[in-house]
Amino acid sequence: MIELAPDQLPPLTRWFTAGSPGAAALPEHVLASGTGRWWADRAAAPRALAVACADHVLLRGDPEALARDALAVFGAHYVQAPARFLPALGSAFDLVVPWERMLYLHQVPVPVPRTPDGVTVRRLAAEDAPALAALTPDTAWVHASWGGPAGLAASGLGWAAFREEDVLAVACTYFHGTRYEDIACFTVPEHRRQRLALACVTALCQDIATRGHSPSWTCSRDNRPSRLLAWTAGFRLEHEYVQHLTGKPAHQGSGLPA
């Protein structure tokens, strides 16, 4: 596949449904934020289209239009695609693992819980980027959809629990769509079980509602803590679906861009 510049994009209404929740809001997020990349089998009148942001990919179109190794650029990604793409994914990677997911929509307003003494929950601001960057490397996924801590901090779409200058928990809009905002959250391990994530998530949900949008929540079916947090924060299950985690390209030396 070849990468497309934003001014090369075809009309997207035939490819993606506007106003969709969960990871399906990814195309709208990429258009609005500029974080992410677009790919197609060809620039003019494409027959297959992909959009990638952070480690997530959405595929649409006709997989028969793709060369054998066309999808190899999406190694180690979570791919959401119609079932007709599975043979192409299977031939492109040494491993394709189905990942059962759950999509929740926010339906029950919940008050922001009290936090421990000395902890403040507030909106992130641009000057909070160093505090986000100071979190452990395994938290980088939280701000990946904004291109890094500076992008998330400046977006105005994140809330965090602070003790002095330290971030203890954070919740943010991960994919910002035209109708739904899909949420991500994280709590520093030693500060869990203090309802800090719940405080951040409920504050963020109230903020999303003031924008006239609706919060959505996606998580693994096996992630019981995330499911419990979603329920406690007022989310209710909408449907289940399957993404696929890709492994390494099955054919090395294909000459595809990294």
Rank of each mutant, 00 (worst) to 15 (best):
I208T: 01
W141H: 03
R211W: 05
A153Y: 00
R101K: 12
P111V: 03
F85M: 05
A199L: 09
H77A: 13
A199D: 14
E181V: 05
F186D: 04
F186T: 03
V108E: 13
P98N: 13
D138K: 13
A154S: 14
A76W: 07
L204T: 12
G158S: 11
T173N: 15
W159C: 06
S91Y: 02
G147N: 15
F186I: 01
L89Y: 04
A83P: 13
V142E: 03
Y180A: 07
D166V: 08
W159F: 11
R192I: 11
T115N: 01
R163M: 08
T173E: 11
G212V: 07
G212C: 12
E190N: 05
V96H: 12
F74A: 13
Y104A: 15
W146S: 13
A126W: 11
H77N: 07
A83C: 12
A171T: 00
A133D: 14
D117W: 00
L89E: 04
E190I: 04
R101T: 13
F74N: 14
R211H: 11
V142G: 03
T187H: 01
V119I: 15
A81H: 04
Y180S: 13
V97Q: 15
G158K: 09
A203Y: 03
A154H: 07
D94C: 11
T139F: 14
S145K: 13
V97L: 11
A161L: 08
I208D: 00
R101W: 06
F175G: 03
V97D: 12
V142A: 08
D138V: 11
L204W: 11
V170S: 02
A134G: 06
A129W: 07
C200Q: 09
A150H: 12
A154I: 08
L196D: 04
V97A: 09
P87D: 04
H191E: 15
D207I: 10
L198C: 06
F175V: 04
H191M: 05
V108I: 13
L95R: 09
R84P: 05
A184Q: 00
V121H: 04
A184W: 00
A197P: 11
Q194Y: 00
L132R: 05
R211Q: 11
Q194S: 00
A154W: 12
F74K: 09
C185S: 14
V121K: 02
A171P: 00
G90M: 10
P149S: 14
E164I: 07
I183P: 03
F93E: 13
V201P: 01
F85A: 01
F93M: 13
D207G: 12
A203C: 02
E100P: 11
A199W: 07
G151H: 00
A169F: 02
L152F: 01
A197L: 15
Y104Q: 10
V201S: 05
C172Y: 00
M102N: 00
L196F: 05
M102T: 02
H106Y: 12
G90V: 08
S155N: 03
T210W: 03
Q194N: 04
V170I: 08
A88C: 07
A184V: 03
A83M: 13
V97H: 07
Y104C: 14
S91M: 08
D166L: 14
I183L: 15
R122F: 03
Q107W: 04
H106P: 05
A92H: 09
D207L: 10
L168P: 09
A81I: 05
T173C: 14
T202L: 01
E181Q: 12
L157Q: 15
P82F: 01
A144I: 02
D128Q: 12
Y78I: 04
